[in-house]
Design a protein around this nucleic acid. Structure first.
Lengths: 345, 345
DNA sequence: ACTGCTTATGCACACGTGTGCATAAGCGTA
DNA sequence: TACGCTTATGCACACGTGTGCATAAGCAGT
C-alpha cells in the first residue's frame, strides 16, 4: 500500500514491449523466446511485479479460492480439519477463506454469499441445523462437500461418521459391564449428528417399551457447552434412581462433566462410569484415562480434501455433479477403553 | 457452478434498463428513485443476482480481504485469535484468508505473496524466525499487524506479551518457595518470544556468575512439541543434581511433561514443582491444578482486530503508516498459582 | 523475386463492475 | 413558447489481465 502496485502495462512499458508479450512470457507461453522470457522474468522480479488476482479471476473465471465454513475453530476436531485443508490449499496454490458460523444460520448465510461473490471454486461446510432458504439456493451454485452433518436439501457428497453405530457401541460397552441405568448427555437433535447419536443410544433399549421409557428419562439434550454438560451431569445424579454410567454425545461435554464431578466429589469411575465422545489430547491425563469414542480425524480431513479435489476436476455439468452427490465416505468411530468405565460394583 | 452466474448486464436487460442504473440502484445511489430501486432489488433477489467481487475489486481497488498468517491453528491460542478475527471480519463484511506457516519461511512467503496478489487490505501475522528477503519486501507493501513475535525488519505495530517479565515472575515464584535448582524447557531462541522468555529465566540468576552458569546447565531448548518436552523433562531429571522445579517456556510443553511424569511415576509437585506457560482448558483437571502463566488471549485477539481496523482507516501515506509502526500493545501474563508448585520439602 | 513456413510480437477486445458526463423528461416561471 | 431547474436514466470509458488474430521478421526452397 505504501508503494502503488506495478501493473503489467507499466512493466511492459519499462521494457519497451506490449503488455500482451509480458503476459505471455510470465505465463510460459511457447511462442515467446527463452531469451525474452528470461529478460522479462528478471525485470518483473526486480520491479516486484505481482499480478492482480482480481483481474486474473475476472478474465479467466477462475478464482483459486476455496472456502471452509465451520461452527467453531476452537474445537480440536475442526482445527485439525482446518490445518489439513490449509496445507492442501497452499500446496495447490489455492486461497483458503475461513468462516465461522457458531451454528447461526445468519452467519452461515453471510459466509456462503461471500464465497459466491468471490466465485469460490469449492466449499467445505458443516451446515447449521436450519440453513435459510436463500442459503440453500446459493449453495446449489457452489461445489460443496458436506462435513459431518448431512443436510437433506443440500445435494453434495458428505463425509460423515457412523455416529449411531458409535454411540450404540459405547452404550453396549457399558451394558456389558453390568450397567442398567445409563444416562445420556447429547447435543441438539436438530442436526443429523445429534439425531443419529441419540438414536444409537436408544437402539440399545429397544427390547421393551418399558426399558425404552426408562432410558428416555435419563436423557439430557442441550447446547454443546461445558456449562450445559456440568448442569446436565448434576441433574442426572440428582435423580431418585441416578444412572451408574453416562454416555456423552459431544466432544464438548467431557471437560464440563469431569470438572463438575471434581467439584462435587463424585469419583469416576467408582461412583459413575463415563464414556466420552472424541479423544482429547488430555484424555490420558486423568487417573486411568477417559474411555472414549476415538474419531479418525486425520482421515476425515484428508477425505474432505480428496473429495473436494475430485469434485473440482469434474466437468461442471449438472449430470455429473448430481451423480456424485451421494455420501461417499462414512468413517467409524472406535471405542478406546480406558479407566473411566468400570464394571458396576 | 451449475447455473451460470447472472451478470448485472443481463439483469439490466431483463428489466429494460441500462446496467449503470442497476448498479447505482443496488449501491443506494441517491439519484435513483425509490420505486426503481425497489423494483430492481426485487428482480435481483428473484434472479439470484450476486455481484462478482473480482470485478468489484478491480474497479474499486478495494478487496475487502484480510489475511491471518499463523504457525499453527491447532494451538488453542491461535485458534482463539482466529475465532475473534473471523467474527470481526464477518461483522465488517471482510473476507478472512487463513494461512498456516508451520514456522516454515517458504510457506510464509507463499502466503504473503498470495495476499499481495489478492490486494489484501490488512494482514495479521506471526512472523517466522527468519522470513525470506522477498517476503520482507512484500510485507512492506501490505498493512500489517504483528502478533506475539516482533521481527526487527518488519515495520508495523506489534501486539506482544511481556514474556521476559512473565517467565521471570514464574521463576521468582519458585525461588520464593525455596527452590534453588530450577530447570527451564524453552522454545527456540531464533524468534523474539523464545529469546525473551529465556532471558526472563536467566534474569533470576544474575546475582553471581556461578549461579548463572549453574542455571544455564539446566536449560533445554527445542521445538514446541510434546515429544521434545517429554524428552527434555527426562533429561533434566536424569541429571546428577536434578532440578526440584521446572519452568515451561511454551504452551505446547505442559501436556508432554505431564504425560512423561505419569509414565515415569514422577509425582507433581511432590517430586518436581511445575509452572506452565499459558492456561489450557484442562489445567484444573489435574489434582490441584497446574500453576501457570495465564495469557489474556481474548484481549490480545481483540487488540489485533482493533489495531488492524485503525490501521485500515489510516490514509495510505508513508508518513502516517511509519509513525504508527511502534509497538502499541504489550500485555502482561498473570501467574495463577495452583497445585503443581509447592514449597521445596 | 516470390511463396511458404516458422518464430516473435503487437493490436484490440473481452471479462463484470462503477462512475463522470450528457441527455431526456417533467414542471414551474417569465 | 422559451427558459431554467430538478430528477431519472443511458452512454462510454476505466480498472488489470489474458488471448485470438494479424503482422513483421527471418529463412529456406522453387
Amino acid at each position: 500500500m505504501l508503494d502503488e502496485p506495478i501493473t503489467i502495462k507499466q512493466l511492459a512499458q519499462m521494457l519497451g514491449l506490449a503488455h500482451s508479450t509480458v503476459s505471455r512470457a510470465l505465463n510460459g507461453h511457447p511462442a515467446i523466446s527463452e531469451a525474452t522470457k528470461k529478460r522479462i522474468a528478471e525485470a518483473a522480479a526486480k520491479a516486484g511485479y505481482v499480478p492482480n488476482s482480481a483481474a486474473q479471476s475476472l478474465k479467466t473465471a477462475r478464482s483459486h479460492t476455496i472456502g471452509l465454513v465451520v461452527p467453531d475453530i476452537q474445537n480440536a476436531f475442526y482445527a485439525t480439519v482446518a490445518k489439513t485443508i490449509a496445507t492442501a490449499a497452499a500446496d495447490q496454490s489455492w486461497q483458503l477463506v475461513l468462516a465461522i458460523t457458531e451454528d447461526q444460520p445468519g452467519r452461515e448465510a453471510h459466509a456462503i454469499e461471500s464465497l459466491l461473490k468471490a466465485q469460490a471454486e469449492g466449499v467445505i461446510i458443516v451446515p447449521t441445523a436450519a440453513p435459510e432458504p436463500e442459503t440453500l439456493a446459493m449453495i446449489k451454485r457452489l461445489r460443496v462437500v458436506q462435513l459431518l452433518r448431512h443436510h437433506p436439501r443440500i445435494e453434495s457428497p458428505a463425509i460423515t461418521l457412523a455416529d449411531r453405530y458409535g454411540i450404540s457401541a459405547a452404550t453396549e460397552h457399558l451394558q456389558a459391564l453390568g450397567h442398567e441405568r445409563i444416562g445420556y448427555i447429547g447435543a441438539p437433535t436438530a442436526v443429523t449428528t445429534g439425531r443419529e447419536r441419540l438414536q444409537g443410544f436408544l437402539d440399545r433399549f429397544s427390547a421393551s417399551p418399558e426399558s425404552r421409557d426408562e432410558a428416555g428419562a435419563r436423557i439430557q439434550i442441550g447446547p454443546p457447552k461445558k456449562s450445559f454438560a456440568a448442569d446436565a451431569f448434576r441433574r442426572l445424579l440428582a435423580m431418585s434412581e441416578p444412572p451408574s454410567a453416562i454416555v456423552l454425545g459431544s466432544q464438548s461435554f467431557a471437560l464440563g462433566v469431569l470438572l463438575a464431578a471434581r467439584q462435587d466429589n463424585i469419583r469416576i469411575p467408582a461412583d459413575v462410569s463415563l464414556v466420552g465422545y472424541g479423544d482429547s489430547e488430555w484424555c490420558t491425563l486423568l487417573d486411568g484415562g477417559l474411555t472414549a469414542l476415538s474419531l479418525p480425524v486425520q482421515e476425515i480431513a484428508q477425505a474432505c480434501v480428496d473429495t473436494l479435489r475430485k469434485r473440482l476436476e469434474m466437468p461442471p455439468t449438472r449430470k455429473s455433479l448430481a451423480r456424485a452427490a451421494q455420501p461417499e465416505h462414512i468413517f467409524l468411530p472406535k471405542l478406546i477403553i480406558r479407566g473411566s468405565s468400570r464394571r458396576r460394583g
